[in-house]
Write a protein that binds this DNA or RNA. Structure first.
Lengths: 156, 156
DNA sequence: AGATACTGTACCGTTTTAGTCCTATATATG
DNA sequence: CATATATAGGACTAAAACGGTACAGTATCT
């Protein structure tokens, strides 16, 4: 079925919620407003904060916010943040690890054609395209409305 | 990691082997030449024969062959044959089934943007692009060489 | 009739995933 | 400085998915 993890699915829910609210929100806050259980939200946000997608602030009044302008975050990034490099099979990755049939295996990394194709298409889907409002708004209205919601952005 | 099943991986190995050999090959034959265990090869071929990719002939001297000109088979078809419809999450599918958070879930099928993008890119990767020889040959040489190997094609 | 080869289904052990919890660390506030 | 708040990191467990195998059935060739 070419699935992504359920966690990745939830991540998009949470990220869209974050897109809607103030610039800095706590995990508990996001859990309450998204309906996703707190431990799960925590896990997701922690993962995302390790990349260039989210930025975290520790301590009282801390929380998570976007590390970059959210309009410029692609789904490829989100998926990679939660599931590692986009590689459809173990064989096709850059890593040396391969199946036991290496000698006879006539593939030798030819899934990379598929990987590249998928990677490219995911680069072109933006996180904000996942917002339900997206389908009712034209791209310009959308970005300006998001910009407005995020007046006090974190990312300097 | 956005994986496909291991079975799908093996399917490509076996299909490429079939691409190389005679038009009609038995499962045992393909198992021997590809190195994939017979029961597994059987399972894969059975699945593929349910679609328009392979065609089966029962009884002595039977086997499997392509149901259509193999140059026109896309990876999207192969993946769908083995894993069902290309849908990255349960939510996004056409089926009514959705997560438990339906009410609050702000997604409502917005993974479909991702699904469509992936589907489109997989439509453009052909099965023959997975052949190791593919990278050393230009498209025309390749299709003619495949056509030559498959002179007595099954598909009318 | 017998041998060959696909068809369908059911089963089980292994691996992966989802979800939870605990301890450590950082920061704001009184 | 003490305390409350919040993230960081990692370990652990129960559940689901997957891979692989086996078996009984059907079709076809010789």
């Amino acid at each position: 079925m070419l699935r992504v993890n359920k966690l990745t699915d939830y991540a998009v829910v949470v990220l869209c919620d974050l897109l809607r609210g103030r610039a800095l929100r706590s995990a508990a806050d996001l859990s309450a407003s998204s309906g996703v259980p707190l431990p799960t939200v925590s896990k997701i946000l922690k993962q995302l904060a390790r990349t260039e997608i989210l930025q975290s602030v520790r301590g009282a009044n801390g929380g998570y916010g976007f590390a970059r302008a959210p309009e410029r975050i692609s789904m490829a990034e989100v998926i990679e943040a939660l599931e590692g490099p986009i590689a459809v099979t173990g064989c096709a990755g850059d890593a040396g690890e391969c199946c036991e049939l290496t000698d006879q295996c006539p593939m030798n990394g030819h899934w990379s054609a598929v990987n590249v194709a998928i990677r490219r298409s995911l680069d072109e889907v933006r996180l904000i395209d996942m917002l339900p409002e997206a389908r009712f708004m034209d791209p310009e209205d959308l970005s300006s409305s998001i910009a407005a919601r995020h007046a006090p952005v974190l990312h300097a």
